[in-house]
């Protein structure tokens, strides 16, 4: 169960949410003027009549507009990044807020036909109405994450450029503003966060108590320790195009800079990329500064920036 805000049905809206749980879309229609109504009310916003009736509709419509967010609208939605927030115009007329699922960014067009996807976010208790393309088959049931995860593309086995650590010129040619390709993705579960809390002794509630975090944390949900995300680098295999050779010993010398610019909410997928920031000759060998950036998938702002200093000798 995620810590995302869920709808609290009222006496007025309950039939709408009950229908969604049964994977059906029911909205109200005015018995006097015929106006279709969303969101549910006790009166018709066109003629103010109270003579309203619930009707089952197809739920199909057209995409009125959408946006792709590059910063989550709330930290709890970080696992959906990038969010595809959309407004759908139902065939009956009313507009509904929703998210698009199972559609790549280049498949989305304003004016396209869309069909409902019933997402049992809390099975038996809450179902949300999401939308996808007419020819898509999206199953968000059971343990599937809110967004159909993009298949992880295995890094192609490229032949890595071999560079002798003593060849300073070749080593310096690695310095670049450009980042590598992305690593595999790794999900930072609450279980992993709890294990790290036990191991490190840092069991502050902001990391370990989802109930309290929902009520009191500005993030609305638990977040991973910055130090945990930093060490998860070892779970992230970055496809490198080069390899340093010829050395007897390689020492992790520490970090020149370590920053945790944005949180990793529990349940988020993370990935990493890197670039060589500096290479210099030191007394004992060649020192390479590797900037490793760990991001929540879909987030432009990194969660960890680690300028790792590696000494080859």
């Amino acid at each position: 169960m995620s810590n995302k805000p869920l709808p609290l049905p009222t006496e007025t809206s309950r039939p709408y949410w009950e229908a969604l749980k049964a994977h059906r879309v029911d909205i109200q229609q005015c018995g006097d003027c015929g106006h279709w109504i969303f969101f549910p009310r006790q009166h018709c916003p066109h003629c103010f009549s109270h003579n309203l009736a619930w009707k089952t509709i197809s739920g199909q419509g057209t995409l009125l507009t959408y946006t792709t967010t590059r910063i989550p609208t709330l930290p709890e939605f970080t696992d959906e990044m990038p969010q595809q927030l959309a407004v759908v115009q139902l065939d009956e007329g009313p507009h509904v807020n929703t998210t698009l699922v199972g559609l790549a960014e280049d498949e989305i067009r304003i004016g396209m036909r869309v069909k409902p996807v019933f997402h049992d976010v809390d099975p038996g208790k809450a179902t949300l109405l999401r939308y996808t393309g007419p020819d898509k088959h999206v199953d968000l049931s059971a343990a599937a994450p809110a967004q159909a995860a993009a298949p992880v593309v295995e890094a192609p086995a490229v032949t890595r450029r071999q560079i002798n650590f003593r060849d300073l010129e070749a080593m310096k040619s690695l310095v670049s503003e450009e980042y590598s390709a992305w690593s595999n993705e790794f999900t930072v579960t609450q279980e992993i966060i709890n294990q790290f809390a036990a191991l490190s002794g840092d069991d502050y509630w902001i990391h370990t108590d989802p109930e309290k975090a929902k009520k009191q944390s500005p993030f609305g949900t638990t977040i991973a320790h910055g130090a945990l995300v930093q060490v998860l680098t070892s779970q992230l295999s970055i496809p490198m195009t080069w390899e340093v050779t010829g050395f007897n010993n390689m020492v992790n010398y520490g970090s020149d800079k370590l920053r945790f610019p944005s949180p990793v909410p529990s349940g988020s997928r993370i990935r990493a990329r890197c670039r060589v920031k500096a290479v210099e000759q030191v007394k004992s060998g060649t020192q390479l500064t590797l900037e490793i950036c760990i991001h929540v998938v879909g987030m432009e702002r990194p969660s960890v920036i680690n300028e790792l200093v590696i000494l080859y000798m």
Partner: peptide, 11 residues
């Protein structure tokens, strides 16, 4: 609170 925020329609 009921129809916008649960979808992340916020801000």
């Amino acid at each position: 609170a009921e129809f916008d925020i649960p979808y992340g329609h916020m801000a």
